[in-house]
Amino acid sequence: IERFAAAAHAHGVPLIVDNTFPTPINCRPFEWGADIVTHSTTKYMDGHGAAVGGAIVDSGNFDWMAHADKFPGLTTPDETYHGVTYAEKFGQGGAFITKATAQLMRDFGCIQSPQNAFLLNLGLESLHVRVPQHCKNGQAMAEFLSNHPAVRFVRYPGLPGDTCYDLAQKYLPNGSCGVVSFGFTGGRAAAEQFMKSLKIAQIATHVADARTCCLHPANATHRQMNDAELEACGIAPDMVRLSCGIESTEDLIADVEQALASL
């Protein structure tokens, strides 16, 4: 993160990091040089698929006036809001987030309803308890899958040998999340059979929920693409994304094991 932060700052722009999957429980990008952090609160922060939402967190560390020519929306008067110049009126610590909440949300909407905010706050109360269980299940699942003959590959940053393992040890020493991606030695047909055989996992495009959710992109989110097009955009036709919930680790592995036995 600090490498990208240095590159961004050398060009006079802030580094924005999406921290949805690790959550602040496992990663705090500000400590590594990021300027702004975003979250889809629909995921782990809500934790129950109850409400759609998002969050922007501004560190207040980026000096907008030092790069005024790049950010006229913050460093020149906003005639739609009484001619205020955000970077002058609210300073380095409040310019961006004030513009986001005062002017951008006024123009584009995306303001949570009180009920959605209430549901999010309920989820946040248990976030620190849920995240370790998601990580425990994700790690155990990745290790199980990596040793199964029906599985062609496994992608999980906590798995030794993964291309992101060393980075995960640095930035995510307490775990990453519950999302594991893997493919099958039997190809696309095996992935389809696997999905049909699951009993606990819910077939859904959703991720980062208290319940385990499973997705086969080739037959869902990316079904408009043929196999060649899928490969070209980095999605193997046989790839499945399993978002491990907070159920019993043993139960989840048993469900996946019986589904693999059906191949």
Rank of each mutant, 00 (worst) to 15 (best):
D46A: 04
H9F: 00
H9P: 07
M195C: 14
T23I: 01
H216L: 12
L198Y: 04
A261P: 06
L242H: 11
A8P: 09
C244F: 02
M195I: 11
H206P: 09
G138T: 01
A68S: 13
Q92G: 09
T85Y: 00
T185P: 10
K89G: 09
A201F: 06
P14M: 08
T76W: 00
D162Y: 05
A140W: 01
C27H: 15
G187K: 05
H216Y: 00
A204S: 15
C233D: 05
E31D: 15
A254C: 07
S243L: 00
A201G: 10
T212A: 03
P114Y: 04
T76N: 09
E125L: 09
P157M: 00
T212N: 04
D69L: 04
W64T: 01
Q258H: 11
D78A: 10
M195T: 07
T41Q: 05
L260M: 02
P77F: 03
N174R: 12
H48V: 09
Q193A: 15
A220T: 13
A8L: 04
H39D: 07
A190P: 06
G93T: 12
A100C: 13
T75K: 14
C233K: 12
W32F: 15
V84T: 12
K43R: 15
F4S: 15
V129A: 15
V256R: 10
A6G: 12
F118A: 11
A201L: 12
A220R: 13
R28M: 07
K99A: 08
N116C: 10
T249K: 11
A8D: 04
D166M: 13
Q92Y: 02
D251K: 12
L215R: 15
H39A: 12
E143D: 07
N226F: 02
T98P: 11
T205W: 08
D35V: 00
F62M: 05
A95N: 03
F184A: 08
P77Y: 01
L122W: 07
W64N: 04
T85A: 04
Q202W: 00
R28K: 14
R3Q: 15
A102M: 14
I36V: 14
W32D: 07
E88M: 12
W32N: 11
V151N: 10
G83A: 06
